[in-house]
Design a protein around this nucleic acid. Structure first.
Lengths: 222, 222
DNA sequence: GAGTACGAAATCGTATACGATAACTATCAC
DNA sequence: GTGATAGTTATCGTATACGATTTCGTACTC
């Protein structure tokens, strides 16, 4: 009653807390791909019992962040090139759609903010800061998607981002040449939106933007 | 040991069984939108305890089939026109992508099968059998998606279908005029695929096919 | 008569406990 | 020395139990 901080923490169920905690550890790379998630151990670490942890793990499984085998246990999803392709291809499609749907609702203030983020990204390239670059890249698109009229599609975008984060792909597959292009494509995309280009054009540009990164990856492996 | 039937049933975890059972009841319309899913009651019905049931419900929540409120409980997701719009719009996008990706891999045998299904759909129109029409409609697209090279996208399509099924929308919003068009669009789509049309053209057609149904619905409400 | 406050019932959330399954290890036979 | 097998350990899967929260009904007050 008196402790508001505790109150707000207690307002969340433990399964929710466990979900958030484990997800954060995966996305931040504390739990790396292949890491064995032992229910009892996580429960002990977090200070509560296995049931809520188990529930959290199943939710993460549904999002594709972990793999769960009956009577064996859960492991953080690994870097499977095929999975990477599937995820990037899907992201290309949903990001394209999200951008096209959002475009008419983006005002000049948002454009300016996005441009500022993109400028920061350019600076990251000079100082070679791939981690921050990746974070800013999400910020850039988040600004564009701020008023996305379809939350389902936005949710799919976020799921894709989480998967990529768990794959830890963006950082160590970071290709400076591609990053440079990416910044330029962002600016081109902003200009398309400003000029009030039609939905198809914007969708195609946004889609290509993601697909080009996939192509760059495929080029390095073949 | 001796009872293979029991054995195969036991091979599935109870949480999996609960998931399948409850999902089926929702999709089949036994549990209608707004239906209150009381954990203890479902557990008793199925003959096992609440923990696996709870897990199943959370999975269904992740798929959008049920709504789960802390300390209140779960209810089957209702027919919210806004949700319908979101789902149809998203389906339009992912079905479009799935069709375009699958098109190059569809052989003449599959085309013939799809055509046969479509012919059955036409017959359903004459006998006015909306339920079977809806089922066949899924069959038609399933044939096209049989060799879809991206399972993630296919999964999104199936999730959308499940949501629609739980919304029980397709049957009672069944508009004969639109259904007629739908059959024609199927044939047009098949011809596009046969002729080896480019991916963009096919994607656009498939997307419009779903979007037109949404438009027809919106027209009836405005 | 309407609104509020209190209490009881229903239901959820989580801990603990135990049985079931799979992985590992050590031993034995060849 | 290598392979198979039995026993042990670790971990999962689920049941049961109890505390926490919400909801509903009832009584009381204004």
């Amino acid at each position: 009653m008196t402790e508001t901080a505790v109150e707000s923490a207690a307002a969340q169920s433990k399964s929710q807390q466990a979900y958030t905690a484990v997800k954060a550890r995966i996305v931040e790379g504390i739990y790396t791909p292949g890491y064995r998630l032992v229910l009892a151990k996580i429960a002990e670490d977090l200070g509560f019992s296995v049931v809520p942890v188990r529930e959290a793990i199943r939710r993460l499984e549904a999002e594709g962040l972990v793999k769960f085998e009956r009577n064996v246990g859960a492991t953080v999803s690994g870097i499977d090139p095929t999975e990477y392709l599937y995820t990037m291809q899907t992201l290309s499609i949903v990001e394209g759609a999200a951008t096209a749907l959002s475009a008419p609702l983006i005002d000049s203030v948002a454009i300016a903010r996005a441009r500022a983020v993109n400028e920061e990204m350019r600076e990251c390239l000079e100082h070679f800061d791939p981690v921050r670059f990746t974070a800013l890249n999400q910020d850039f698109h988040s600004v564009l998607f701020e008023h996305c009229p379809n939350p389902h599609i936005l949710d799919l975008v976020h799921r894709g981002w989480n998967r990529l984060a768990s794959l830890r792909s963006s950082t160590f597959r970071f290709v400076p040449g591609r990053a440079q292009e990416s910044v330029q494509e962002h600016e081109a995309l902003l200009q398309l939106i400003e000029s009030g280009a039609d939905a198809d054009t914007i969708e195609h540009a946004a889609r290509r933007h993601r697909a080009a990164t996939l192509d760059a990856y495929l080029a390095t492996t073949n």
